[in-house]
Design a protein around this nucleic acid. Structure first.
Length: 474
RNA sequence: GCUCCCAUCGUCUAGCGGUCUAGGACGUGGCCCUCUCAAGGCCAAAACACGGGUUCGAUUCCCGUUGGGAGCACCA
């Protein structure tokens, strides 16, 4: 039997990292085993579901590098199937109509829970045999009163609950709409899903869903529950407290490779390996190696992983990824110009060692994208490093650079050395800092020779001239 | 409260009875390198929650305790 899996998010917000990881596990495992992976939007809650959210989920998954088969299906478009399944259940007496109102149930529930016992539906309508014309009613599944609703979880091992813990759950609202559990099970059966890989928060839902499979006379799929990703406080991720949306990380300058790498390692490991490409994830991911305990998402580890990817990705890819971030710290025109500049790849190569995110790289590359006459100087750096006495050496350097036959790091360094030799007592550091600020506006940049080499002869000259013109007098 | 689940450094984890004076990674501290910022190299501090068993022998198996989490809807 061929493997079929699905990722079934509800479109009630952005794709969040917990869902992204569940999708990643599904995707990787399915691809590894040559199965079919489908995406099903669980939009039965019409009030909370939005088209924007669905688009965000689709975009997020694509951006991360995942693909799926057989298009995209929406649960809302399968209502007929759900309704028919409920009718079948009713006809076979595996379910019954219940006329208890929410208020009545609430009152009875209060009585039971007051004694400390656990409430499950008391079965008042179970034997009443209400017909279709019984007035406003819900439909409840007949859940066995004894026995066990168990399964062999691919991650958690033997799992289950005693059937009596569950109670007869509602599968159709009084307005005729089916509930989530019914829809999920009917869809999974209909789509011939063989392996349900989902978050451990569904562990408690599984027994009831198993009862549903049995009532439907459908074969049980294999279940694999993966541990939750929790926030720094150890609790379930909260949109309020934690940065959770994939979009957020994308906008903060994290690469999809890094995000996948980070997420796959929370709850799964492969020996001591830390870095995994999407191809490696697809080749190596196994449910046997998945963990059972929940894990925290450590943003500092993400930073490190992101930089690791920044360090090894092809420069052309980084240049392209960098553009929007460059535009954000300058303007679209400057960013486009910089992206077309032959010197940018060289700068990116210098910056990969010092950038944890694309946003940070853009901030460090800003000086390059800015027009020469628009560069702003860091006031504190100027105060500290632009000493009047450095004016003459700087002018000498300007001349030495202008006389350089070839514009490359070694030549620039030679020019520096020449100026240093001419000026007794002048240190390499002070001169480098003065130039660095003149050319980048900041006291921190890649090596000064490499920086000038990448900036180019003309732009360096323009910036030195501008700095000299603004130089503090003794 | 009830049901279910989990438990190795601060965090992610290796470990699937002896190889553990418990390994790696992030982070942290120190040193080196150095024109700044990084990157890199070296070193260091840092964990088997507790108590019972089982066993010749438990981080590894079992049971409790404690701690944490999830679920208890006519939400998904």
């Amino acid at each position: 039997m061929s493997i079929r899996t699905r990722f079934a998010p509800s479109p009630t917000g952005f794709l969040h990292i917990g869902g992204a990881r569940t999708a990643l596990y599904n995707w990787a495992w399915t691809r590894r085993h040559g199965g079919t992976f489908v995406l099903r939007i669980e939009d039965t809650d019409r009030a909370r579901s939005t088209a924007e959210s669905e688009a965000a989920i689709v975009d997020g998954l694509r951006w991360l590098g995942m693909d799926w088969d057989e298009g995209l299906s929406r649960q809302s478009e399968r209502g007929d199937l759900h309704r028919a399944a409920i009718e079948t259940l009713l006809a076979r007496d595996r379910a019954y109509r219940c006329v208890c109102t929410p208020d009545q149930i609430e009152a009875r529930k209060q009585q039971v829970t007051a004694t400390g016992a656990k409430w499950t539906y008391d079965g008042r309508c179970a034997e009443a045999a209400h017909g279709p014309a019984c007035g406003p009613h819900t439909v409840r599944l007949r859940v066995p009163k004894d026995g066990r609703l168990g399964w062999e979880d691919l991650v958690f091992g033997p799992s289950g609950q005693d059937a009596r813990e569950i109670g007869d759950m509602v599968i159709r609202r009084s307005d005729g709409s089916p509930l989530y559990h019914l829809a999920v099970v009917v869809d999974d059966v209909d789509m011939k899903i063989t392996h349900v890989i989902r978050g451990a928060d569904h562990l408690n839902n599984t027994p009831f869903q198993i009862a549903l499979y049995r009532a439907l006379d459908a074969p049980l799929p294999q279940f694999a529950h993966v541990p939750l990703i929790v926030g720094a406080d150890g609790r379930k991720l909260s949109k309020r407290r934690d940065p959770v949306s994939v979009q957020h990380f994308r906008e903060a300058g994290y690469l999809p490779e890094a995000l996948c790498n980070w997420l796959v390692r929370i709850g799964w490991s492969h020996g001591d390996q830390e870095l995994f490409s999407l191809d490696e994830i697809r080749a190596l991911f196994s449910l046997e190696a998945a963990h059972r305990s929940s894990g925290q998402a450590d943003p500092q580890k993400l930073d490190w992983i992101n930089q690791a990817w920044i360090k090894q990705l092809p420069v052309g890819r980084l240049v392209a990824e960098l553009q929007p971030f460059l535009a954000a710290v300058t303007d679209p025109g400057a960013a486009a110009a910089a992206t077309g500049d032959a010197g940018l790849p060289g700068l990116v190569d210098l910056l990969r060692e010092r950038s944890k995110t694309l946003a940070e790289m853009a901030a460090r590359a800003r000086f390059f994208a800015l027009p020469d006459d628009a560069l702003d100087y860091d006031a504190k750096a100027v105060q500290k490093h632009w000493k009047p006495a450095l004016r003459a050496p700087l002018a000498a350097l300007r001349d030495a650079l202008a006389a350089l036959p070839a514009w490359e790091p070694a030549g620039v360094e030679a020019a520096f050395e020449g100026v240093l030799a001419q000026h007794e007592g002048l240190g390499r550091g002070p001169l480098a800092q003065a130039v660095r600020i003149a050319v980048t506006g900041s006291a921190a940049s890649p090596g000064i020779y490499e920086t000038l080499a990448v900036l180019g002869r003309d732009r360096t000259a323009a910036r030195l001239a501008r700095a000299l013109a603004a130089w503090p007098a003794g």
